[in-house]
Design a protein around this nucleic acid. Sequence first.
DNA 1: GCAAATTAATGATTTATTCAAG
DNA 2: CTTGAATAAATCATTAATTTGC
Lengths: 233, 233
Amino acid sequence: MKVHQFTRGFWEHEPSLTLGCKRLRPLAPKISNNTDHSTTNTPSLSFDLKSFIRPESASRINLASSDDNKKDPPSPQGQVETLPGGTRWNPTQEQIGILEMLYRGGMRTPNAQQIEQITIQLGKYGKIEGKNVFYWFQNHKARERQKQKRNSLGLVHSPRTPTTTLVSPTFSCITTLDTPKRGEVMERDQGDHSPLKKSRSWPLEYIEEQNWSMCKEEEHKTLELFPLHPEGR
Amino acid sequence: MKVHQFTRGFWEHEPSLTLGCKRLRPLAPKISNNTDHSTTNTPSLSFDLKSFIRPESASRINLASSDDNKKDPPSPQGQVETLPGGTRWNPTQEQIGILEMLYRGGMRTPNAQQIEQITIQLGKYGKIEGKNVFYWFQNHKARERQKQKRNSLGLVHSPRTPTTTLVSPTFSCITTLDTPKRGEVMERDQGDHSPLKKSRSWPLEYIEEQNWSMCKEEEHKTLELFPLHPEGR
DNA sequence: GCAAATTAATGATTTATTCAAG
DNA sequence: CTTGAATAAATCATTAATTTGC
């Protein structure tokens, strides 16, 4: 067997058993409940840790910041960098429009598949990635919320009547209609509250293959996208 | 039995009044700045919204379905059986061990590539996905932090030298070593503070292709994985 | 001894906050 | 200042280990 030099420090006890000291199951040992695999023979974890620990950047840099966490690269100098497509997504009007439409339609946090679809569609109007869609919904939801909180707090009758601003001439923006009653955010989502749906999740599952939940999508029921005035109120 | 009386629907903060609408691009109209495509003729956004709004939600079929990609058929026999797709990741001891090793080595939030690698390796010990790795680090970091906060609060000078508690009889558990001094979280990360690295990001970029940042990884410098006591302190 | 009920731990999501590009 | 991007905190949900009653 090979001796992994990396474990040298403190893993030399034994390759396969020890492991997580303090993190052991609090209550009981339960050494091997692995569903299977392991039983045969543990591969003796000989993988190349070096590649994980981020080989480069031996010279440490940030001493100063250290306040909390990385967050801000202290020395932005040296713009070398390949800068591949480094810039952030800059949405086009069409993209925003569609996204808002979906948002108004009730979509809040699309699942992986939905994101994929949306991305494809929005891709027709400009460069975009799945994460952009994901983030957009995240941000939009959050900011819509805080904006509204601010409004309800500070200026109840807003002196400047912000909404009067400029409604898109084309459509009269049903905006007011879709406001969730007043029962709060309501998170109308999209009726995805099926019993044991794994709820939604994120794009992350794109990884590997989509072995997660989602992807049910059995059929296309023709329900309208915009439950605009579901109850007429 | 689970008593989640929790707060099922407690986010009632305040009523929402208006939303949407004025969310038009604040600065400029900029109707069509798309890099290309659009100029010809906007597709008149006629894609199938229905598919986005998540039509289903009726019958949750997914009961047995599938397992689809349950990549571990190897254990046909089966005791508990990795049931259908629905279960959450249940890490094996080996997996936990490796993850902790990496964590102690300083890794906090692995980037997409690292996650991929780790996942592959951990896959040898049991079923696992990239997201599991990602979540593990997130959770572990967070809980390590709060645990330590709790400690620092409750017992400031801890007269009883907490570590004396119960060290696993088998090994003397280096636990104390990895505790970040007490100089606060310290977030040693892994020296990933390269200047303008897009910082790390998440697995999400696996989506589409990996056109994001990361993937620098020019060469393998042989530096040790564990900057355990980098400066001797 | 076993199995339902409890409880502690922790995997997975969601929300809030922060950072920085433009 | 707006907002895309990223991270941390809070929360939800499920599993494993313990306890309890038989």
